[in-house]
Amino acid sequence: MTFKLSRNQFFLFLFIAQTGTVFLSFQTPLVSATGPDAWLVFSGVGIFHYILLLLYERNYEYFKPGPFVSWMYKGYWLLIIVSFISYIDYTLAVWAFPETPQIIVISIMVGISLYANLSRAETVINLSVILLPLIPIFYIILFLAWPDFVWTNLFPIAKIDGSDLLKGIIASQFTFIGIELFLFFRKHVDSKQKVSGIPLFIYQMLWMFFFLSSVLFSLLFFSLEELKMIPEPIMYILKSQAVALVERLDLFFIFLWMMWSVITISLFAFTTIYVHQLHAKGHRKRNTIIFHILLVIFPLFLRSKEHVDMIQNSLVYFHLFFVIVVPTVVILMNRRKKK
């Protein structure tokens, strides 16, 4: 699979992979653990995210996973995709399709990913472009809630203990999911275009703005007690807004989020197949179809909200392993080999 990315394509790819699915739900566990300090905790976590990006940028050339490590990553991404699909299916069942059989909704979503992944590599890479005009609309609608914001909800701060802080940091890790794709695709970025320095900082700022604003909106709009009972605070903010001729904006945005998530799934599926093809030459089409069949079958085993939550909660620990431990080991080994 040969392709070349522009800097913008690369960052857009990374942004959508990191934001899809999780941006709707990570606020509640974060705020539950840290209260009004959530925004402060997330700001600190954002600095960690930037440090990670800087380290990745510095060492990506040494990240050359062998077949075993690749299989580990493939398994990890399969878990991510399955948990995303299960969560989307569950959310759609709550908000839109309580009666529709699970397999139909899942098959349709996975079918989109299959279609994209059977196309040329550039098609999947550029798929995120469709979201670009929709993201500003999403923000404009969220800002309609401005008059309802209670600014004192952001205070008091610095009231949490170490245990809550740790819980908050772990809850924030959902927003990091996908950052490891940086290591896999950085080498495909046009060498004439600079990534380190200002461009990377701008990416970090956009990531930070996106997630931090969603935490702030949730804190400002809901009281702490309300937030603990609302699994998708952003959707509820949208639900409370009305513009001319549209009474329920959330119904539009649940499908915008669904599109966003399907694209994220397609990107992860693309990454999995791409990494698989690095070691298994040929049969790309066959492997893509088999992988997508698995993507339809596995989420069917996660029938209840408890199952979905269990997988999602465990995902954070897998994530820490694959984002910090594995890259560190692979990079150090390759550095040593080079010496």
Partner: peptide, 18 residues
């Protein structure tokens, strides 16, 4: 499928156009 059908159709159309 309502809006879900439109959203899926839009993605298919977009992928096809690409």
């Amino acid at each position: 499928f309502g809006f879900f059908g439109i959203a899926i159709g839009t993605l298919v159309l977009f992928i096809h156009l690409m």
